[in-house]
Write a protein that binds this DNA or RNA. Sequence first.
DNA 1: GCTAATTCAATTGCAAGCGATTGAATTGTG
DNA 2: CACAATTCAATCGCTTGCAATTGAATTAGC
Lengths: 155, 155
Amino acid sequence: MATKETKDSGIQPPRTLDGQLCFALYSANLAMGKVYRQLLAKLDLTYPQYLVMLVLWERDGVTVSELGDKLFLDSATLTPLLKRLQAAGLVARNRSTQDERQVIVTLTDEGRALQAKAADVPVDLFCAMDCDVETLGGLKAQLEMLRSNLSDAAK
Amino acid sequence: MATKETKDSGIQPPRTLDGQLCFALYSANLAMGKVYRQLLAKLDLTYPQYLVMLVLWERDGVTVSELGDKLFLDSATLTPLLKRLQAAGLVARNRSTQDERQVIVTLTDEGRALQAKAADVPVDLFCAMDCDVETLGGLKAQLEMLRSNLSDAAK
DNA sequence: GCTAATTCAATTGCAAGCGATTGAATTGTG
DNA sequence: CACAATTCAATCGCTTGCAATTGAATTAGC
């Protein structure tokens, strides 16, 4: 055999930077982060903090684990992030009385009020992406499939 | 006007977590990072470090700025990363004699030797993604377009 | 030739992100 | 009931990623 081949397929994955899908994913994500940083600056939120607020605006009063399941993050990331949101006066953290292991995250009045100020964010971001809706929808579906496959592969 | 609309388009970008392309991008990138962390553990590299090595394996002896242009990263990220690669014995960092402001990054013998050990990484990752090549190619092109558009939007 | 503007890497301070571990609370099993 | 296993949040240590700044080297303008 002259060159290494992918199992059973005979396909050659690219070995250079430019050829790799993963680098495109990585750098698109970085670029998205920069746009969000600008858009969210007026709300004093980072993108992961904004994601937590999105979850809470949809359904208030969730545990750290539930947040983690929705956002694919664990407590090592969420606990300090939630403390910062608490310090900013946007959420409260309270132990569940039913199960003292769980911490319930709740919106404060200020946190609820922030939703109105954040209304423009999805619109502005949609404009920044400058794509037609069909493309974005297809891209979203493919990325979700990719995330699912990669999650399965990672143990 | 009953609801806010995207400029001139009448289109409603999604406001919930599940609806957002950006979250799909963000979480797919996190999932990719976890797979790479496992694959690269045997090489003692992180994914950004691996990207730097990819660049150097393609063309040895590049400046920090050139690395930054290729990887869309700046010196605040690259300098400490390169110092870690240097501490690991994979690269050397030397001031250019032509222009003392520039730092030239060069592979050591050990760094060059690592390329052989990394040969399986793209293959393994391709398997982990579990997609056909056409899908991956299309996805890569769309992500590159998205990155470009977002970069333009961010200042 | 001299000063102003620019370029380049480095540094600082902060916020993720995660592997690994800890400790408390709960559940399961005999 | 007892006690082992599990679940859950928190903590530690490390590596990105970046805005802002610094300081040195180079280039441009006069």
